[in-house]
Amino acid sequence: MVPKRMREVRLSRLKEEGIKAFFFTNGVLAVVVLVGIFGLLLSTAIPAFKEIPVREFLASKTWDPTSPEKAQYGILSMIVSTLMVTAGALLIAMPVGLGVASYLSDVAHWRVREVVKPIIEILAGIPSVVVGFLGIVLFGPVIAKIFHTGHGLNAANGSFLLAIMALPTIISLSEDSLNAVPLSYAEASLALGASRWQTLIRVKIPAALSGIIASFMLGMGRAIGETMTVLMATGNARSFPHGFLDSIRTMTANIAIELGEVPYHTTHYYGLFAIGLVLFILTFIVNLVADVILSKYQQREQ
C-alpha cells in the first residue's frame, strides 16, 4: 500500500505535468496555425507562377484577368498604389502623432491628458467601414473642391483616412514612451539651463526614440493591411498612379473585390493568392526593419 503522503506528491506532480502540457499545446498551436496559414498561402500562390511569369507579375502595370481580349496579370500598379497611400498616410500621421504625443506628455495639464488620452484611444475602435464612409461623404467632396478634380476618390483621400486610423496607435505608444523617459534626464537638462523646448527636442524625444519608431511601424502595418477604407475611398481604378489625385487600387482592395466571385482553381484565383503572398512579404519586411531598428537603439541605450 502506498503511503498517503507519496500519493499526494505523485498527484500534484501529475497536475503540474498536465498544466505544463496544456500551456505547451497552446504555444505550439499558435505556431502551427501561423505556419499553416503561410503554407496554405504559399501552396495556393505558387501555381499562379506556372502560368504567369514572375517578371510579368511583378513588373507589368496591367491587371485585367477577366478581359475578353487577353487576360493580364501585372500587379506593379497595385504595389505602387499600396506603397503610395501608406507613405502618404505616414507623412501626415508621423508629425501630427508625435506633436500630439509631445503635447500630452509635456505641455498639457494632467487633467486634460486624463480626458484626451482615452478619447484618442477610443478613436482606434472606429470600424474601418465608418472611416471609409467619412471618406466618401466628407473628405472626398472637400478634396474635390480644393483641387478641382471633380471627385475626391483618390490616393490623397485614402492617405488622409489611413492617417486618421494610424494616429491613435502612434499617439498612444509615443506618449507612453515619452513618459517612460526617466525624470532625471529632463531635470538634468533643465538644471543645465535648457528651455523646455530644447529639453523635449534634444533630450526626451531622442531618449524615447525606440518607442516612437515602433509606434510609426505599427501605424504603417495598419495602413498597409487596411482594406475596407481604401476600397471605399480611393476609387479602385486599375491604372498606374501618377500622383496623389489619381484614383488608385491597392492590393488589399483588389483581393477583396475579386476573391468573392472568382472561379476556384483558375489562374485568376491563384493570382489573387499570389498578391496575398506579396502583401505578406511586404508586411514581414516592415516588421523586420522595425525590429532591427528597435534592437539597434536598445543596444545603444545600454
Binding site: T62, D64, S67, P68, E69, S77, I136, V137, G140, P141, A144, G150, H151, G152, L153, L231, M232, G235, N236, A237, R238, S239, F240, S247, R249, I257
Partner: peptide, 28 residues
C-alpha cells in the same frame, strides 16, 4: 463590344456609390 474597359475607370462597390460619385463629379 467585348473589349477592355479603360483602366482609369473607378470601380465602385454598388449602384448607390456610382450615383454619389456622379452627384459630385461634373465630368462623371
Amino acid at each position: 463590344g467585348n473589349r477592355n474597359y479603360s483602366a482609369d475607370m473607378k470601380e465602385m462597390n454598388g449602384n448607390a456609390q456610382i450615383i454619389e460619385g456622379i452627384l459630385q463629379d461634373e465630368g462623371g
